[in-house]
Design a protein around this nucleic acid. Structure first.
Lengths: 196, 196
DNA sequence: CGAAGCTGATGACATTTGTCAGTACCGGAC
DNA sequence: GTCCGGTACTGACAAATGTCATCAGCTTCG
């Protein structure tokens, strides 16, 4: 019997998944959480064999939670972004599937992961293989992350403890590297690639 | 027996919802679709009594599909945006619930809607009551929509058949009305309010 | 009818932003 | 040891952007 921990911020979906997976003869859901921190705390108490986490769970994402868990983790996500798969695998995630996966297939993936194997959705894998390595330096990613919140340069400078001119330089190089016209487009492009 | 049509672009969720709702004694799922257009086409063939649609289904949204359906519609959404509820009710939608609703509650809502009543989630309703009427003129909304795609002003002008100066004026008034610092923030704010 | 509001435009102006050149320090690779 | 890349800053310049005043035609509402 595989003891399963489920985490997703949407009750409708989490409940539905729990009900369906519980129907499988060899799987039982022993815990449910609405965010990553709760999931980690719960895992300490209920000792599940496998965790299924949603990638998008404010606050913080599923990768952060996966890093803190020692058990095999399957990440479920709505929209694929190439770089995210790489980060997820780096965090020790063993399964990576889109929400377009039927529940029966998910059960089979859980069994595989529990058996020590890995599973990555084919489309995601192809996507990731075509992926470029991130050309951005850590600081460039920092300012792009701040840009994504819609902040003006002065605020970005304050938030990152940099001079405004320095921020503009980083943004300028990032804009050039990403071949776009302004920092907003750069932030969007970097996000879509999963780089920030 | 209530004949139900389900539409959601995520198979995992749609399948799980279908399975759970089918367990209800008086509900049977007679059709599933992954987007609004398919849902409308399918409704013409299978003649459901009630449709449950996801609000976010590219291409087009659930409201567009709801407008074309003559049967009672329940919209399910991930994140509430105040203005969207108003638009949905204007389109004749009878139920409006977040994805944080348990499936059992959703079944009860489907029964209510089938019985001719309306159901709107309490939080959404409170949100909508606190809502400001949209202060933006149609043209202001146009340029904000274009801004949201990340276009520079010249392209917005070309796309809307306006002079660049005029576009800047509309953006300026929109920025002032929304009390933000630039057009990107304005576009984001307007979107979060459900105005564009 | 007049007032008000939306539309569409122009020109002037200040600010913000993106670009570029140049400087400096640090750490790792060859 | 030198070169390279990342970090951090400054100053200068041009382009994009936001603001404001002003105009005119049009519709709608009181």
């Amino acid at each position: 019997m595989i003891r399963l921990l489920l985490a997703d911020d949407e009750v409708l979906i989490r409940g539905a998944m729990a009900a369906l997976l519980d129907l499988e003869a060899d799987i039982c859901v022993v815990g449910e959480a609405a965010d990553g921190e709760t999931a980690v705390a719960l895992a300490g108490r209920v000792r599940p064999d496998v965790a299924v986490l949603d990638l998008e769970m404010p606050p913080g994402d599923g990768i952060a939670a996966a890093e803190q868990l020692t058990i095999p983790v399957v990440l479920v996500t709505r929209h694929a972004r190439p770089g995210v798969l790489r980060r997820a695998l780096g965090a020790g995630v063993r399964g990576f599937v889109p929400k377009t996966t039927p529940a029966s297939a998910l059960a089979e993936i859980i069994r595989q992961v529990h058996g020590g194997r890995r599973y990555v959705d084919q489309d995601f894998a192809a996507y990731a293989l075509s992926e470029q390595p991130c050309p951005l330096s850590p600081r460039e990613r920092d300012v792009l992350r701040a840009t994504r919140q819609g902040k003006p340069i002065k605020e970005i400078a304050a938030a990152t403890h940099l001079a405004p001119g320095t921020v503009r330089n980083y943004l300028s190089t990032a804009i050039a590297k990403l071949a776009v016209n302004d920092r907003h487009a750069a932030a969007r492009a970097a996000w879509e690639q999963g780089w920030i």
